[in-house]
Design a protein around this nucleic acid. Structure first.
Lengths: 95, 95
DNA sequence: CTGCATCCGGAATGATACTG
DNA sequence: CAGTATCATTCCGGATGCAG
């Protein structure tokens, strides 16, 4: 399997890259991601588990039954790819 | 919608980025993509139509009922993003 | 023989309600 | 707040058919 296919194995799932993008600058909580992205709650839970299993992010327990989701070094290494994709998407739909 | 979300609108579908990767170096024919990627034939037809509609690639008629699929300038602009994702995927699965 | 379209079962995703 | 349970909908993949 190609390296790109390996990357898409984890990041190709819906919402995965958008979640990582949100966490690039600062850790966020579940409800923050849900509101900003508009992702269905069950999908968010599923993706967060997968991304954690892939070593992209980690779960940080806070107080009062709250957690924060933060990127690992491996997750932060996606910044270049996300920036490249975003700037490509910024020039879409030229009439 | 964010720029990343706009990009994933087109490239988030399964096989889309892998098809673009194959075409980065040289145009290919339908059967070439099918063999090298192992993508189901109906999905390949669907993705090629979507990518063409998005202006990522174009259909070049050859002889004897064959066509070549080649990236447009807009498709070639994805090289950086694909390289970034690939190099990220190359370092996956650390035990 | 190449380049698709169609049909159909199963997987992925989404909306909503509910729980610790 | 941070999820889980359930059900509807959409997407995907394999088999097959068919025209140029």
């Amino acid at each position: 399997m190609s390296d790109l296919a390996a990357a898409l194995e984890v990041l190709g799932a819906r919402w995965a890259l958008l979640i990582v993008e949100q966490l690039l600058d600062e850790p966020q909580r579940y409800s923050d991601l849900q509101r900003t992205l508009g992702v269905p709650t069950n999908m968010l839970a599923t993706r967060l588990r997968e991304l954690e299993a892939a070593g992209v992010l980690s779960r940080l327990p806070l107080k009062h039954n709250t957690r924060a989701y933060a990127l690992t070094d491996r997750g932060l290494a996606l910044r270049d790819a996300i920036v490249a994709l975003s700037s490509w998407g910024a020039q879409e739909a030229r009439p």
